[in-house]
Design a protein around this nucleic acid. Structure first.
Lengths: 216, 216
DNA sequence: CATGATATGGGACTGAGTACTACTTCGCGT
DNA sequence: ACGCGAAGTAGTACTCAGTCCCATATCATG
C-alpha cells in the first residue's frame, strides 16, 4: 500500500522534481485523498525517506552483533556493511534515490533528521563499549565517534553518487573512514595556504536581505 | 535593524517557544509588516541562525591561516578555536541560543544546513592540504575529514549544553576530536554486547502510519 | 440485524513563504 | 521649487504543507 503510493510519487518526483510535485497531485494519481495520504506518510518527505528510517535499527543490530573487543570505529565500519551491501545489490535504485535527495533541499534536511535518528540508536552501544555506563551526557566521545562515522558514510555516499556509482561504496567508505583512523600517523606534502572560495550550498538559498542594504 | 528585530524575536521565542511564535507576531511587535520581515530574513529560522552563517567564513579564514605543514585535523581543531572562544566569552548568550536550537526541530535542521555551508567552505582548503588539486569529486577524504570535525564540534557543543556550560567547550572539543585521532592506538576494556534501545529523536516525530497497520 | 471500531474522505483552518501592486520617501537634476 | 526615478515599505491575494474535526463507509463481532 505504502509501496504503491511511493511508486507513484517517485514517478512524479522524477518527472517534475520534488518541489513542484504537490501532495494533492500524488494523492490524486494514487487514488486516495489528501487526508489519507497524510495518514500513511506524515510528511511529503517521508515518501522518499521512509525506508531509510528503519535502516537505523538494522545498523544498530549489526553493531550490537560485533565482537566486544573490536575497536568501536571498526565495529561501526562493519555495521555499515549493511548499507554498502544494499548499494552494491541495487545500484540503479540507490542512485535514483540519491539524485532525488540532492535535488530538493528539504529532502537533504530530512535525511539529516534520519541520520540523527541513527545516532540516537548507535550512541548507547558505542558508549557502552567505550568504557563506562550508558552515557555520562557531558561526555562527547561516543557521539563524536558515531557522528563522525555517519559523516564518513555521507561523504562516501556523495562521492559514490559523484562517480555515478562506478567505484563501490564500500571502497569509498574504507577510504573515508580510513582517513580518520590514520590521523595520528598522517604526514602530508607541505603546501602553501591559499584562499578558500565560497559556493552557495543548499542552505544559502535564502538571502538574508533581498535588494540592497536597508537603512537603519 | 536586523538586530532590533532579532531582539524582539528572541524575546518572543523565549516566552512562548519557537513554533508557537508566528512571523506576524514578530513583525507586529517589531513594528514592521510581514512583507518587510521577509525582506530582511528569508525565513523565520534565519532570525536565529543569521549570525551562524558568516561564522563559516571566519572559520575558513582561520583554517587558511594555519601553517601548511600542520596536520589537517589539528588545523581544523585550531580553526574551531574561534568558536570555542565565543562560547567562552559569552557563555550565557550562547547557552540561550543553544537551548533555543534544541527546542525546535526546524531549527536543528537549519543548523545542519549552516554546517553544510561550513563544509563547502572548508573542504577546498583541506583538499588542497591533503595533497592533490582542488578536489577529485569522487575522493571522499577531504569531506570525511571536514564533516567529521564538524560532527565533533556538534557533539562537543551538545555536551557543553548538557553540562550547562560548566566544562569549557574547548576541553570537550579536545576530548571529542582527540577520540578520533587516537583511533589506531585505542584499546578498550572488553565488554559483552547488549541490545540497543530506541529513543525517538526529533526526526522520528512523524510516525509513518498513525493508527495501526493498514491493510494492503 | 445492530453495534462499535477502524479506514477513508471532505472541508475548513493555520502558518510559512511568494508574487504583485500600490504608496511613501528621499535624493537628484533641471 | 518642481518633477522624477529609485528604493523601502505595506497591503493583499495566493500556494502549499500540515492539522483538526466531522461525516461516512466498511467490516467484524455480538
Amino acid at each position: 500500500m505504502r509501496a504503491e503510493v511511493s511508486e507513484v510519487a517517485f514517478r512524479l518526483f522524477a518527472e517534475q522534481g520534488f518541489d513542484k510535485t504537490t501532495v494533492d497531485q500524488i494523492a490524486a494519481e494514487a487514488g486516495l485523498s489528501r487526508t489519507t495520504f497524510f495518514r500513511y506518510f506524515g510528511t511529503k518527505e517521508e515518501v522518499v525517506l521512509g525506508t531509510l528510517a528503519e535502516f537505523g535499527h538494522e545498523v544498530a543490530a549489526a553493531l550490537g552483533a560485533r565482537p566486544a573487543d573490536e575497536r568501536p570505529w571498526d565495529s561501526l565500519r562493519r555495521a555499515f556493511d549493511m548499507v554498502t551491501q544494499v548499494n552494491a545489490d541495487e545500484p540503479g535504485q540507490s542512485l535514483n534515490v540519491m539524485r532525488l535527495l540532492s535535488d530538493a533541499c528539504a529532502l537533504m534536511t530530512r535525511r539529516w533528521e534520519k541520520t540523527q535518528g541513527w545516532q540516537s540508536v548507535l550512541v548507547p552501544e558505542i558508549s557502552r563499549r567505550l568504557g563506562g555506563g550508558p552515557e555520562p551526557a557531558d561526555d562527547p566521545r561516543a557521539r563524536a565517534l558515531v557522528a563522525s562515522a555517519i559523516a564518513c558514510l555521507d561523504a562516501a555516499t556523495d562521492a559514490w553518487m559523484a562517480s555515478d556509482g562506478t567505484t563501490p561504496l564500500s571502497v569509498l567508505l574504507d577510504r573515508a573512514m580510513g582517513t580518520l583512523s590514520e590521523l595520528s600517523e598522517q604526514d602530508l606534502p607541505g603546501r602553501p595556504c591559499a584562499q578558500a572560495d565560497d559556493q552557495g550550498s543548499c542552505g544559502g538559498a535564502h538571502a538574508s536581505v533581498r535588494s540592497s542594504s536597508p537603512s537603519s
